[in-house]
Design a protein around this nucleic acid. Structure first.
Lengths: 298, 298
DNA sequence: AGAGAAGCAAAACAACTGTTTCAAAATATG
DNA sequence: CATATTTTGAAACAGTTGTTTTGCTTCTCT
């Protein structure tokens, strides 16, 4: 069956030997194989931010005579994919039942996750999400609280938000006690509290303290009657349904990202400039490995 | 939002009213739908033995403005993307822009996120996800690396995994240098590295070190040729496409959760017992507030 | 029969395709 | 440092794309 070796493999194995621009092109092809099948070479080149000639050169570099050949390969791949799906199902049945069971579990997890996100961006929540943005924009200081499984979401928000604003405190209880980090919180601030059952005491206490200081709270949680939601000004209820023993904070992470995206969109040019300068700073600190190829897909 | 439900249906229902030559064209399209997606209009016309103008006329006859629209529809059908996602952007372009820009942004974020997760649980990746589980099960020690925006995913995994197994190290560079945490890593261990462009130097270095010690690597990243994927044993490619400046690690978080869920499912009774005891321990530490309102969703 | 309409294909069209050429820019080599 | 080599993007190219126009044929109806 090794009539023509898999072009994708070829692309990966030769990747290191390619010139930077060709790598950029190769990378885009690897990341967006369907573009090869469906779009034109020039438009793919545009999407990869590379002149058309680079793509042609890449073809000769990997030993393909013409773009047509390359495209044909990917078109066939696309047409065969549904078939191989069925084959895989048959294979897995032969191999063992366990694998089949695992596949099904993964499938059902995917469905649940998508469902959760779908709900998180439902009509009712969209309005409240915008309200939350307004509250954050007007706040003097933004405190983010999330412990345990909710910590990733809290961290995510603080990390992204800090790229264009510096008035955020991630209350992680690591650097000093809770009390230290919440010192001075007042009605002009806002607290974003993230959590789901079982509710972690620390988070609840942080919310209670914020409320006692008349600081408005945005609660991202699993229920209108969650302890952290009871006194919240804005309640963003996300589903944490999951197939496993472990609650899923995917929707919360997603929602938190969306809030940041909204804040940036509403912040306009100024926000973008701040982000640019933050990224410059990171680059100056030698944080990233050089890989200066932006993968824009139109 | 109810644009023409399905062009194929339209073609069939209008078939009788078409002129003979148009019927010939329509018939070919119905019999060879993939030709629409993959070939050019003229070449399809040749295959149908019809002049190109007939195809154009057919388009107007069934109420489609341009061949491009028609082709887009069939391309998306081929990709079996749920109806109207990213590629569909052109069709859904005619929307009121200024009234509820925020609402639309949220909607489009939701679509992208769902799309990302959908891909993360696609057919190709499911197999590799199971492979990753096997590797993790057999590992002496599991090292998880993820910096910056990828940290939430790494944390998520470590946190959930620790509930039923204690052989995980979250390499966060916080407690001591990287070197300390990776000390003793060898071929019997496994490293889970999470990252996307721009690749953070620390993560890349950690992977390089792991490889130098012959420790297999499971890379969760955005490309087959990402620096952390190049030498990885298992590559789990997740899309980090996002509407904002900020890459989305939602799919990575989701995938990581799925891996844990799978590990538990495969671990059987023993894993469940460990989780139970971990939760008891947490309860004993008074971590959670007692929650008198059992909001179980059936 | 012949006026009018409808169907049709060939030609014309501008825009875009994949490829090659060539000189400048970047990089390596001495 | 200058030189040789590679890498790169703009321009040029012939061919193809989707669409429109044009004029010819075929059918229909009094």
């Amino acid at each position: 069956m090794g009539l023509h070796a898999d072009l994708r493999e070829k692309l990966i194995s030769d990747y290191a030997k390619l010139s930077p621009q060709m790598q950029k092109a190769a990378r885009h092809i690897l990341d967006h194989p369907n573009d090869v099948a469906l779009r034109s070479m020039r438009s793919l080149a545009r999407a990869a931010d590379v002149p058309p000639s680079t793509v042609t050169r890449l073809m000769t570099a990997i030993g393909v005579d013409t773009w047509q050949q390359f495209r044909d390969h990917y078109q066939n791949r696309l047409l065969d994919l549904p078939a191989s799906y069925a084959n895989r199902a048959r294979e897995t049945q032969n191999v063992s039942q366990d694998v089949d069971r695992d596949q099904h579990l993964l499938e059902s997890i995917a469905r649940t996750e998508i469902d959760n996100i779908d709900k998180a961006f439902g009509a009712e929540l969209r309005g409240r999400t915008i309200d939350a943005c307004v509250a954050i924009e007007n706040a003097r200081q933004v405190f983010v609280v999330g412990r345990g499984a909710a910590y990733p979401a809290a961290y995510q928000f603080a990390y992204a938000y800090r790229l264009f604003r510096d008035n955020v405190v991630l209350v992680d209880g690591r650097s000093g006690a809770f009390g230290d980090q919440l010192r001075g919180i007042n009605r002009r601030d806002v607290m974003i509290a993230i959590g789901a059952r079982p509710y972690i005491r620390d988070t609840v206490r942080a919310v209670e303290y914020a409320c006692s200081q008349h600081c408005p709270v945005i609660a991202i949680c699993d229920s209108d009657v969650a302890p952290i939601a009871l006194d919240a000004m804005i309640k963003l209820i996300v589903s944490d349904k999951s197939q496993s023993f472990f609650q899923s904070f995917t929707a919360a992470v997603s929602l938190v990202q969306a809030i940041v995206a909204l804040l940036v969109a509403r912040g306009g040019q100024k926000a973008l400039e701040r982000i640019a300068s933050a990224e410059e700073q990171l680059a100056a600190f030698d944080t990233y490995v050089e890989d200066p190829s932006p993968t824009r897909n139109s």
